[in-house]
Design a protein around this nucleic acid. Structure first.
Lengths: 156, 156
DNA sequence: TTAGGTGCAAAGAGTTTGCTCGTAT
DNA sequence: ATACGAGCAAACTCTTTGCACCTAA
């Protein structure tokens, strides 16, 4: 069945090869921020007639078409996530590398205002937090547990 | 005369070779965010007995010592600026690549609060805006010019 | 004196690309 | 039929490193 990303590709007039269909499916099923190597691994699991060069070419194409967004979380490799995931930002756990998404709609406004103050139109922005999981404080009431944290998503 | 960065190096017990002294001087005079290639160029202008490998090794060392900070503005190369430059963020002009620094002290608080809400202590963060210089609106009063923008710094 | 720094060239990691063949439209 | 995509390996860019030599402390 046609995946969400595949539909977007067709809408933008891309020629749909077998390889692209597989990569589109992998991306549609993606809830995290895989790098090219990981996408290649997942795609190969579905169909091993895919080369990593094709994955590179495809993510680049999809990024240009606005279907994918490239991220850089440090570590020297680009990572990708489907666009229209809703505006959100990332908090990277410095110990584990885990990425937590969070929203903060107020920021959008503030950032645009800052850009405007400097005489610019805001094209895009990058907001990333690097944090360390807070240890439950071994304090007066050691049995007290913090309530579970609400978060939008957790992923590699 | 001993440059600011050289003093920091000595304070941290680094062996001061001729090359390091030159690189320290270049960094002390730096008001922008040069990449390694550019640092190498500037250092070579002062003393041509410096190899780019040494520049790479030195910026890495100084980063580990907390004297330098590595930035990534996209474009695939690391860029550096001396630490203790005061907390600030960057707006990158997407047309020219020019970097404009700005401060927004309120952000620090907000970001720490967001991290805390997710159960993390904020270790560091990255906030970058990508913008396009706003054209003077060719509107009713075409002679009106925007007042000059106040900015902290402009650099490559 | 000697731990540690430097230059050079080679090696790595991630990504792109030239070329030939294959395939969606 | 043909314009465009895929596979493969080579090339590229940025950065790190092994090794022999050099130098600050």
């Amino acid at each position: 069945m046609e995946s969400r990303i595949e539909r977007l590709c067709v809408e933008r007039g891309l020629k749909m090869t077998g390889q692209r269909r597989v990569i589109a499916r992998v991306l549609s099923d993606t809830g995290d921020h895989p790098d090219v190597e990981e996408l290649y691994r997942r795609a190969s699991a579905l169909d091993n007639r895919i080369s990593i060069a094709t994955v590179y070419r495809t993510v680049r194409l999809l990024e240009e078409k606005g279907i994918l967004e490239r991220r850089d979380f440090g570590g020297g490799r680009a990572r990708y996530e489907p666009s229209e995931h809703g505006h959100h930002h990332h908090l990277i756990d410095v110990e584990t590398g885990r990425v937590i998404e969070f929203e903060d709609s107020e920021h959008e406004r503030v950032l645009a205002a800052i850009a405007a103050r400097l005489g610019f139109d805001l094209v895009s922005h990058r907001l990333e937090l690097f944090g360390r999981r807070r240890e439950p404080v071994a304090a007066a009431k050691p049995v007290a547990k913090r309530p579970p944290v609400r978060r939008t998503a957790v992923s590699q």
